[in-house]
Nucleic acid binder design. Sequence first.
DNA 1: GCAGACTTGGAAACCGCTTTCCGGGAGGTC
DNA 2: GACCTCCCGGAAAGCGGTTTCCAAGTCTGC
Lengths: 330, 330
Amino acid sequence: MVTLEDVAKQAGVSLATASRVLNGSTRQVGAALRARVERAADELGYRANIAAQTLARGASNVIGIVVHDLTDPYFAALADGAMRAAATEGLLVMVGTTHRDPEQEIAYLATLHAQRVRAVLLVGSRVADQGVTKRLREELARYQAGGGRAACVGQDLLGVDTVAPANREGAAELARALAELGHTKFAVLAGPPHLVTAADRCAGFAEALDELGLPAPQIIHGPFDRDGGHAAAQQVRDATCVFAVNDVMAVGALAAYRERGVRVPEDVSVAGFDDIVTLRDHVPALTTVRLPLKDMGARALELALNEDDPVVVEKVAGEVVLRESVRRMA
Amino acid sequence: MVTLEDVAKQAGVSLATASRVLNGSTRQVGAALRARVERAADELGYRANIAAQTLARGASNVIGIVVHDLTDPYFAALADGAMRAAATEGLLVMVGTTHRDPEQEIAYLATLHAQRVRAVLLVGSRVADQGVTKRLREELARYQAGGGRAACVGQDLLGVDTVAPANREGAAELARALAELGHTKFAVLAGPPHLVTAADRCAGFAEALDELGLPAPQIIHGPFDRDGGHAAAQQVRDATCVFAVNDVMAVGALAAYRERGVRVPEDVSVAGFDDIVTLRDHVPALTTVRLPLKDMGARALELALNEDDPVVVEKVAGEVVLRESVRRMA
DNA sequence: GCAGACTTGGAAACCGCTTTCCGGGAGGTC
DNA sequence: GACCTCCCGGAAAGCGGTTTCCAAGTCTGC
């Protein structure tokens, strides 16, 4: 592996000069030497050793992103947004997937800390587990004590800059829109009770119904994914409208209905949450609450990089999008 | 930021001993000292500086993955497979997205080389551009000359270990299956001519038709994504069966037909390629050629890490899956 | 033509960790 | 009890860069 010293030797200059030429220093280097060094580097195929640079400079140009599952389009969109933003800043991205294991999330944070990454993005719902949250906060504190920066997409539970989707409000607005269409009997495919995102959406929906004087919805818990929605849909009793707390679950529910010959929206209306882009061609088109996922990812990165001291929490509103999967009641 | 020296001082031992205790050396350390060091590390919240470790050890525990677009479920699945495999090896993953710009791919490779990552995975179709391929190969050669390992998912054009989907063969088999159903007039939504994956699938399909003595299909080029399929579908003249060279394009085509009131499969049959998992609930269910994407990603990582000298190219067969989107001709 | 200010190149300290090389003490053997 | 191993702790030499500090020019201005 060719080192800076090799280049310096070949160019007949000192290490310092070679470094200044090749790795953007403030100091000027004369045109003649500069050219010699550049030629030598090119001939030798020199690539700076970033580990060494990071060590010497005491600062890295890498950021870390921790998500639950990259194959879930929700996280893919968020990660993509953040990665594009990182690319424009000239930062490299290290991605970790936890597959919904909070311990993994803590472990990744520790590893990214060890890597001395410039910033860490924790993307995805928090869990309602005091112990886990406490340990994650401790790990985060250590990382920040060492100069690390962090931001979160999800709930404001970590004491760091946060991009927080307005889950309660979005679900409430959706509930009102569905009630407006004449629905009165609802079911909620609510996901796992410990997932704060799921719980918030469920609660926001139920509260709005309550305020409208409508009966409480049937609440069915289960996994937060397609199969969870599929399974939960089987347990719906007599609702005319089913709210799945995310789009992927809604798609699972739609599949379950299709298999059973239940027509959507004629026999039952179905709504989701997130407005996943990949699903835009789904039949029937899904009523949902749109979240600007890419922007949220990008914004989280900005917040993390931002030097300002006060912790900022940005609420991101969702927009109800009514589509074919719900109908107006007669 | 707390360093190993701080820990050693606090524990009252030498740097060497602290290092041996905390960072898995072959050398044994006495129980008493070991405990002292561990306690000190814990109290101080020590995290090894991986940049320093990488430098000292001359080997990193990071791998790089370069994909075109993470929000495309095809790449998400491949990346996920590779990342899971990496996680079991205790490796961290740096992800770069090129958004289909070959120059970006080269640039990322250079950067990952600078990072001295243990291995690089180049995931995605090669392009039919001699110049770009040559420069990529040069960059690759430099990286490998420095001890870097690399593998590719796509076409065997780089002289490195490759997991190569059997695009021609899969498309040919699909063509035969569709001909079997009685179709004779085909169109191919062929994607961009310079994308080797697209070109191979198109060619394999056309060749098979030719061998069967069927008329040549209408070939329509365009972008390799959903909107490309949507647009290309408008140009189909009088085929009874349309082959989109990937699933996302097929979905775009289905959307176009739906908008125009053309029924699938009654009026026209549509098939895709890849068998994207996220699309399994699409209506109508998509006929396609299944590729084991996660396995391919994982396998590519294995190949990259494998020390063996000879370059291995593994062809991965696709499996034709007939579903609702095609019909048998009367 | 010369003092003083600027510029530019090089020597060397340092970033935080790993690992080789030594040395001293404990344990085993005859 | 003398001799030889074996085991374990510490000192110090890197790993490949960056950057400070000097010294030697090169310009300027008068």
